Simulated assay, not measured.
Amino acid sequence: MARAGVTTERLTQAAAELADEIGFQNVTVSALARHFGVKPAALYSHVKDLRDLRVRTAALALTELADRAAAALAGRAGKDALVAFANVYRDYAKEHPGRYAATQIELDLGTAAGDAAVRHSQMTRSILRGYELPEPAQTDAVRMLGGMFHGYVSLELSGGFRHHPRDADVSWARTLDALDAVLRNWPPA
């Protein structure tokens, strides 16, 4: 018997929760159909295909992440903003590893998911206002921060730091100190 109340929003939320439980790449329309007690075909009135479901999950995750970052950045500038943003990013990835993985898929600009990704990028740029970086240095810095945050978090989530005696939190704090120093002393072109 089908569960009542399947909507696109509930389906997307369930996909995000399932991604955190079993991994984003393991989320399928069939798995969600089992969750809702319906046949997979019943879900296609809510999502076009698996790609659509994954994009919706990415949009949800990026929106959640951006909302948390916006709250953390309020009234902060410079290193204080950098650390707040970085910690939101890292904490979200640890709390929601499947959703975090969803944020890494390629998204089309001009869509809801693409707009969520742009919002996230704009918040990264807002951190850089405190460092007064002109273009194109600002774009380079956005890419550097994204690469560093994603790289660190990905290594940490995969257990890459588990076998070293130095605490990953200490290394994280030192890395943020180093990023602040680089941003304050950006090399000339």
Rank of each mutant, 00 (worst) to 15 (best):
L155A: 09
Y44K: 07
V29P: 00
F161G: 01
F161W: 05
A102N: 00
L53M: 08
N87D: 13
A74D: 11
E64S: 07
R10V: 05
A137K: 12
L62T: 04
K94C: 11
P188M: 02
K79C: 02
E106H: 11
Q104Y: 00
R143A: 11
A42T: 12
E21V: 06
A189G: 15
G160D: 12
L73M: 04
E135I: 10
G146I: 06
L145T: 12
K94W: 15
L53P: 03
R68M: 06
L179G: 03
R34K: 13
F24H: 10
H150K: 15
D167T: 01
A81L: 07
L50H: 09
D169C: 01
A141S: 09
F24W: 10
E64H: 13
T103S: 08
Y44E: 00
G159V: 06
R129F: 05
V55E: 15
R90L: 14
T7M: 04
D49P: 01
R90S: 05
A137R: 12
T111C: 06
D91G: 08
F24D: 00
A77S: 15
R99D: 00
L133S: 04
A93E: 00
R76Q: 14
A66Q: 03
A84N: 06
A84K: 09
R54H: 14
A93N: 06
R51V: 14
R3C: 03
S154F: 07
K39S: 12
Y131P: 00
L133N: 05
I22Y: 00
L82S: 04
G130F: 05
L145H: 13
T139R: 15
L155T: 11
Y152V: 08
H163V: 04
A59R: 07
R143V: 10
L128M: 09
E21T: 11
E95P: 13
L155D: 03
D177V: 08
R162Q: 14
I127F: 11
L50R: 15
D177S: 10
D67T: 09
A58M: 00
Q138I: 14
V118L: 10
R174G: 09
T175V: 11
F149D: 05
L107A: 07
A71K: 13
D169M: 01
A112P: 12
G5H: 08
K39W: 10
V38G: 02
R162P: 06
I105H: 01
Q25P: 02
Q25T: 14
V153C: 05
T63V: 10
V153S: 03
V47S: 09
P134G: 05
D108A: 09
D67G: 08
D167Q: 10
A74H: 07
A77M: 09
P136N: 15
